[in-house]
Structures are given as C-alpha cells and as structure tokens.
C-alpha cells in the first residue's frame, strides 16, 4: 500500500507535467487545426531563459517573470514567423513548419548556450516532506498545485470571460467569428502567446527535477502528445486527464511489470486508444479534423 501511494504521487506529478504541455497542444489545435510540434521546445527555451536570468543575478521570482515574458514574445514571433505566412495553406505545411521551428529552436539554444546540461534550483529550499510512508517531492507538489490552478483558471477564462468566449468562437468557426466582428488573427496570436507561456511554465517547473538540457523539450513533448491523443485532441479536460493517466500508468507499469518498458506502457495505451477509440476519452473525431 505504501509503495502504491508513493507511485501514485510520483505518477500524478510527472503526469501533471505532461498535462501542462498537452494543454498547449490542445489550445493551438483548437485555434488553428494544426499540431504544434515545437510545443516541447517552448518548455526547453523557457528553462534556459530561467537559468540565464538566475545566472544574471535576478531573484528567482523576477527570473520567473522574465522567462514567461520571454515566452510570450516567442509566442508572438512563432505566430508571425511560422503560422501566419502559411495560414491559408492546408494543415500539412504548417505542421512541417512547426517541426522545422522545433529543430531551429533546439539548435539555436545549442549554438548560443552550448551543450552543457544545467541545474536549476527548485522554488523551495526543502526538497520535500515525509507524510507517513510517502515522500512528497516539493517540486512535484508545486507542479500538481499549478496544474490544478490552471484547470480552474482555464475553466473561468474560457467559460466566463468575453475574451475566452471569443477564443472559443474562433476555434469553432473562424468565418463565423470574423462575421461577428472578432479579429481572428488577434485571437490566434493570443492563443500562441498563451500556449508558449503554458509550455514555458511546464519547462520551468520540471527543470529542477529533470535538469535543463536541449533534449528536455522533446522528451516531454512526445509523452504530452500521446496524452493529448488519449485525452481527446481538442479537449482541455482531456489533455489534463490524458496527461495524468499517462503519468500514473507508466509509473505503475514500471513498478509492477517492467522498468525498461516504462515508455512502452505509455505508447501501448496510445496504440490501444488509436485502434479502439481514436477520438480519445473526451475528444472529437480526429479524422474529421485531419
């Protein structure tokens, strides 16, 4: 029982990271009908921005704000440089452009900062707390807390605010939204900014656990992408549930069946969903979008 509780906590913690990145995938997919394969690199870039800001002598909280502002700027540049010029083309050129952008981002960071993996300290001086038989890593606690807050924020933002409703309208029918006076390009710009910030937030939160390296983005993004499909492409709640499920399944699978095949369990679940329920837990039919 003690073992199961410890695994459950860790699984939820790592799953929350997948969920945060998956959320970015979903928001961009809803707004533009394309998958942004650079979403994982957003996490990596933000973690490096954070390291640079901390090394420059900024207090941790200020470095955090600077990193997120940097990500907002990257969201603007990404929208204008990658999506906007191809917005009238089919989804395929845009997807290929995002793959190209992800390679460019990874190699740009490599060229500017070098290949050295970096250590980013966590928010708290105490690495964790022991609650009965379970050790609660403070960084995972923070990640879980932030994910819960973001779920609540997303619900409020998209359901209760005018801007959120405009974003939803744009994602559902761009032409109709435009006829209603909504600036579609502005809404898509906001979506890219928000997704970049979300991806960045995931990167900054997970960096003290996984270290800051060029590969960290792609490692997380692959699982987050699987989580997005499992949860249902285009569904915010699906991304969260998909991410958490994936984290828990792979952690329990590793502990009770086989450690070396840990990644295999995640992708087995993905394959099962693609075969038996391709629209995911909550999602719409992927085939119709694609």
């Amino acid at each position: 029982m003690d073992l199961a509780l410890q695994l459950l906590f860790t699984g939820i913690g790592i799953g929350a990271v997948y969920a945060l990145v998956a959320l970015g995938f979903v928001l961009i997919f809803r707004a533009t009908n394309v998958v942004n394969f650079a979403q994982g690199e957003f996490s990596m870039v933000a973690a490096y921005l954070m390291v640079v800001a901390v090394e420059a002598g900024l207090p941790y909280w200020a470095a955090f704000i600077v990193a997120l502002l940097g990500m907002a700027l990257l969201g603007v540049i990404f929208n204008l440089g990658v999506y906007y010029p191809l917005r009238h083309r089919t989804y395929l050129p845009v997807i290929i452009a995002t793959i190209g952008a992800s390679i460019l981002l990874a190699n740009s960071v490599l060229a500017i900062y070098g290949p050295q993996p970096q250590v980013l300290e966590g928010w708290f001086e105490t690495p964790g707390i022991q609650v009965g038989p379970v050790y609660l890593d403070s960084q995972y606690l923070l990640i879980i807390g932030v994910t819960i807050c973001l779920v609540i924020f997303n619900f409020w933002f998209f359901e209760k605010t005018l801007l959120g409703k405009k974003l939803q309208a744009t994602s559902q029918d761009k032409e109709m939204a435009s006829l209603l006076g909504i600036s579609v390009s502005t809404m898509i710009m906001i979506t890219f900014i928000y997704s970049a910030v979300l991806g960045g937030l995931a990167g900054i939160l997970v960096a003290p656990v996984l270290f800051v390296s060029i590969q960290m983005g792609s490692t997380i993004a692959l699982k987050a992408f699987a989580a997005t499909i499992i949860g249902g492409f285009g569904d915010v709640a699906g991304a969260i549930i998909g991410g958490l499920s994936l984290g828990v399944i792979e952690t329990f699978g590793a502990a009770y069946i086989s450690v070396p095949y840990k990644d295999g369990f995640a992708f087995l679940v993905l394959i099962a969903f693609l075969i038996f329920r391709p629209q995911g837990i909550f999602g719409e039919r992927v085939a119709e979008k694609a």
Partner: peptide, 20 residues
C-alpha cells in the same frame, strides 16, 4: 538485477525496487 531504459525521466519505481 534491475535494468532501465536510457533517458528515463523518473526512477521512483527503480528506487522502490532497491528498497524492497
């Protein structure tokens, strides 16, 4: 005798196996 796959993000199951 415990193997693991390279580039793992979490070793909790491994640590718990060692403990047990």
């Amino acid at each position: 005798d415990q193997g693991y796959a390279n580039q793992s993000q979490d070793f909790t199951p491994v640590v718990l196996a060692i403990k047990q």
